[in-house]
Amino acid sequence: MGKEKIAVALAVQAKVPVILWGDPGTGKTSFIISLGEQLGIPVETVIASIREPSDFSGLPIIVNGEAKMAPPAWAKRLAEAGEGLLFLDEISTAPPAVQAALLRVVLDRVVGDLKLPDGIAVVAAANPPQQAAYGWDLTPALANRFCHIDWKPNASEWVEDFVIDFKKEKENIPLLPKDWKKGLAKTKNLIAAFIHARPQLLHQLPKEESYAGRAWASRRSWEMTAYLMTASDAAGADEDVKIILTAGCIGEGTAIEFLAWVKDLDLPNPEDLLKNPASFKLPTRGDKAYAVLAGVAQAVVEKPTKERWLAAWEILGEAAKQGGRDIAAGAIRILITARQKDFPLPTKQIQEFVTLLKTAGLI
């Protein structure tokens, strides 16, 4: 199964909106319909190019003397199903007014006055504007709500399907385990550490209109990156799939820098540090120090015991002694969420951070 197909399958299961960019006739629509069948969910196909804004924002009607925005039939069917896939085809030929109406649909799953269930995934397909009749660049606001994947035809795969009239057995779609989100906090900590080191990469709206209609870094797209990286790890996806999904959210250049940074970190195991807090040595790199301390705090959040709670505080105290008080402060905000009623505040270590904790209202 191709890397792009795996990436799309993971994005759909993680409920991160994804858009496929590819030439006409490359099988985007047939794959999405097949994917819905293999996941056992209904697919509602809506041709964006022939729709009006009211098809997404709702038609005004009067109900009991009040104006309501009635959703279209396809939205009602998805809501009744509880889970499914909304496929927005030919979205690059939708005019700006229709794109504006799609903003809430894609991000919030809201159609008119109807909130679609959390089990609804959104996928769009687009031809490059220069190849589409009356094509438009996506507005930056809409583009930044998608993970962008370049859909490339695979000749070998097509030949295999062609000679048997496309009647081969179903492909093995990678399925996410039910607890796939358990690694989300760890991924978010990594991203936070990266942005701590590269704050200029938090938000990068391209100045050129055509680039602004594709993937670029923002608070929203970094959030999507966290979900898709976590999904990739949970599914055991390889590095190529991670690159496709990460670049599809924050842009290729930023994604390459981020993934190289993660690979270069070589972080110690938080569990080893919690077993022997006195062994902690503050890394000289600020970004690495933040990632290590945040990882320790998150490990306690995921498995809170009194012993682990006190060990984490000992590590933070060591960090403060070694000149990392400000860096440790960020980890404290994570650690404090793990506190149970019978967890004591360690008097010795708390003195290093008492002013911060009082200011934040944590004590």
Rank of each mutant, 00 (worst) to 15 (best):
Q13P: 04
D266T: 02
G119Y: 06
Q13A: 00
A197C: 01
K341R: 14
A101G: 09
C249W: 03
P268E: 05
A255V: 07
P177W: 01
E169Q: 08
D264T: 09
F194I: 05
F162C: 07
A11E: 03
L293A: 09
D264N: 12
L114H: 11
I336R: 12
G236R: 04
R109N: 03
I256R: 15
V354L: 15
K306D: 10
K263L: 06
Q349M: 04
K15T: 13
V106G: 03
P268I: 05
S57K: 14
S218K: 03
M69A: 02
A320D: 02
A235N: 03
I164Q: 12
K15S: 07
A75N: 05
A48N: 11
Y134T: 07
E80K: 15
K182P: 00
I350L: 15
A312R: 13
G361Y: 02
Q131E: 14
V98H: 10
A260Q: 12
E171L: 08
P129H: 00
W313I: 13
F343K: 10
K28I: 06
V159H: 08
W222H: 09
E83M: 08
E307R: 15
I336A: 09
L274G: 06
F194D: 00
L86D: 06
D240T: 14
A320F: 05
T29G: 10
A260E: 12
A7D: 02
N144D: 08
I256W: 09
G361H: 01
D240M: 03
Q204H: 05
R219W: 01
D161F: 05
